[in-house]
Amino acid sequence: MAQTQPQEQPQKQPQEQPQERCVMVCQHTSCQRNGSAEVLKQFQNQNIPGVTITASGCMGQCSTGPTVRVTPDEIWYYRVLPPDIPQIVQQHLIEGEPVQNKLHPRIHQRISY
């Protein structure tokens, strides 16, 4: 009678929990002069599962504010205005695709040949 080998059970991998996103909206003086308080308010009025909206201090991008940074993606948006928010929410925060025309050019450099 042939002996059967015990079958190896596949090792279960721990399920990776998706990391919550955080949208930080600069509220430093120069960004506020360009409307960042309204940008923050508009983001806070959105109901986005898995996303925390918070005010931040200066992010060092004063000449291109209001600045919005999304972590853990490390996506930086520049000159964000209230009309930009629905596209950022839908395209990036829900669908996962950053909004190319609002990417901060100092942070997200594009190289053309």
Rank of each mutant, 00 (worst) to 15 (best):
I53Q: 10
S112I: 14
K41H: 09
N101I: 04
S36G: 05
P49S: 11
Q109E: 14
G50E: 09
V89E: 11
V25A: 03
L93T: 09
N45P: 00
Y78F: 11
Q13K: 09
Q9C: 00
L103Y: 03
Q87D: 15
C26H: 05
I48C: 02
L103K: 10
Q100T: 13
I53L: 11
V99D: 10
Q27V: 06
Q100I: 08
K102V: 06
C62R: 02
Q87T: 15
N34G: 00
P98M: 14
N101S: 13
P86L: 06
G50I: 07
Q5I: 15
T64P: 00
N34T: 03
Q42P: 00
Y77T: 01
V99R: 05
G60H: 08
G50C: 10
T54K: 11
Q42T: 13
R69Y: 10
T52S: 12
G50P: 11
V99P: 09
E38Y: 02
R110G: 13
L40V: 10
V25N: 03
Q17C: 01
P66C: 09
V39S: 04
P86A: 12
M1W: 04
C62Q: 12
L103R: 06
S36K: 02
T64V: 13
R79W: 09
Q15F: 00
N101E: 15
I111W: 09
I85L: 04
P14F: 01
G57M: 08
Q13V: 13
M59A: 08
T64W: 03
Y78T: 11
P98G: 13
T71H: 06
P66W: 04
Q90C: 07
C22F: 11
Q87E: 15
L103V: 08
Q11D: 15
M24G: 03
Q90A: 14
Q46T: 04
I107H: 03
Q44A: 00
E97H: 15
N101T: 12
I48M: 12
N101G: 12
G57Y: 03
E97V: 15
W76E: 01
I48Y: 13
Q5W: 01
P14W: 06
G60K: 07
Q61R: 07
H104S: 02
Q109P: 03
I48T: 05
V70P: 05
G60C: 12
A37R: 07
H28M: 02
P105Q: 07
M1C: 02
H104I: 03
V25C: 08
P6H: 09
N47K: 14
Q44I: 01
E20I: 01
N45C: 00
N45W: 00
I107M: 07
T29F: 00
L93C: 12
I94Y: 09
T54G: 03
V80K: 02
V70I: 13
V51S: 02
E97W: 12
C62M: 10
